[in-house]
């Protein structure tokens, strides 16, 4: 396992550098200039020259890139000229919000999707199965923003049961101290993911239910509960782990929608605004962060595979 991890970490470093290079090239291919985007159409040539000099945009591109890499290596992600803050502080302020949102919504989606998927597999072609399939299809086909608006209109605007915006505090503790504000954003994001998880879980569980080891477990006289939880669940979860990794971009994309609708300034909107305003340091910082998060996520998924299925070995 250790040699595998070392190999993967080296590969990951190469991938991250590749992501940085590609991102750097792509953002410099955008039409226009960050100076004009930041200063507006009224900017004089002198103001633009001053801006470019202050931000190092007057240097040749390779020099700018090396300078960036050098700063990153020293722990400096750069300075956002549109937010007038360091990129590190922006990420530090925004990241906890997304972590809370994604962790809670994914946990809720799994908590609903996994047992209901197993239930549907066990009770396949029953009224309950058909009903849950219908609900899953409706939710799966519903855009996140639409679902968010429906929930908002009902619970915040019409009946005033829940707040119309997510907690505005900064930091995980502050956010969690206003749980009512988290309900609608988390549920909006979770319901769409839940639909996908339950469908995959149903399919995976149905495949496993006809396997020999399930028949053997039942023949041994194990209770149905033990068969389902100890044998079926564990084996059926493997495709869910894959799905979890694959659906991460979709969850993040959904998070952007939720950030927009529920006034929840997270990483997604930070990136979106930076792209519109050509805020290069933020774009690079975000690419670096996402690159690292992705390779770490993949690494973790591999480790989880091994934990779920003892047959998988990386030596």
């Amino acid at each position: 396992m250790i040699p595998f991890l070392i190999r993967r970490i080296v590969q990951s470093a190469v991938v991250v550098v590749g992501v940085l290079i590609i991102t750097f090239i792509l953002i410099h291919l955008l039409p226009g200039s960050p100076a004009r985007a930041a200063l507006g159409p009224q900017a004089t040539p002198a103001a633009i020259a001053h801006f470019n000099q202050v931000n190092g945009f007057n240097l040749p591109l390779p020099e700018q890139f090396l300078d960036y890499v050098n700063r990153v290596a020293h722990g400096n992600l750069g300075y956002s000229y549109t937010n007038d803050q360091t990129v590190a502080s922006l990420i530090a302020n925004r990241l906890p919000k997304d972590l809370v949102l994604i962790v809670f919504s994914t946990a809720l989606a799994l908590a609903l999707g996994v047992p209901l998927g197993i239930y549907q597999a066990v009770k396949r072609n029953s009224l309950g199965d058909y009903t849950l399939t219908g609900v899953a299809f409706i939710l799966y086909s519903m855009p996140t923003f639409f679902l968010a608006f429906l929930l908002l209109a009902a619970f915040a605007v019409q009946f005033h049961i829940l707040p119309p915006e997510a907690p505005q505090a900064i930091g995980v503790v502050g956010i969690l101290s206003h749980p009512a504000g988290l309900v609608l954003p988390v549920v909006s994001l979770a319901l769409v993911s839940f639909a996908a998880f339950s469908r995959y879980m149903r399919s995976s569980a149905m495949d496993n239910l006809v396997q020999d080891y399930i028949r053997t477990a039942r023949a041994k006289g194990l209770s149905e509960w033990t068969v389902l939880v100890r044998h079926l669940l564990r084996n059926s979860l493997i495709p869910i782990v894959t799905l979890l990794g694959l659906s991460l971009p979709a969850i993040v994309a959904g998070a952007i929608v939720v950030e927009e609708v529920f006034n929840y300034p997270g990483m997604g909107l930070l990136f979106f605004d930076a792209a519109l305003k050509q805020d290069y340091p933020v774009l690079m910082g975000f690419a670096l962060f996402v690159g690292v998060a992705t390779v770490v996520g993949n690494l973790l998924a591999d480790v989880v595979y091994a934990a779920l299925d003892p047959r998988i070995r990386y030596d």
């Binding site: 609708v261 529920f262 006034n263």
Partner: peptide, 15 residues
């Protein structure tokens, strides 16, 4: 603060 016009208008409508 508001992330978007949509968020502002939602909060406005909720009073």
């Amino acid at each position: 603060p508001f992330t978007t016009d949509t968020a502002e208008f939602n909060v406005l409508k909720a009073g």
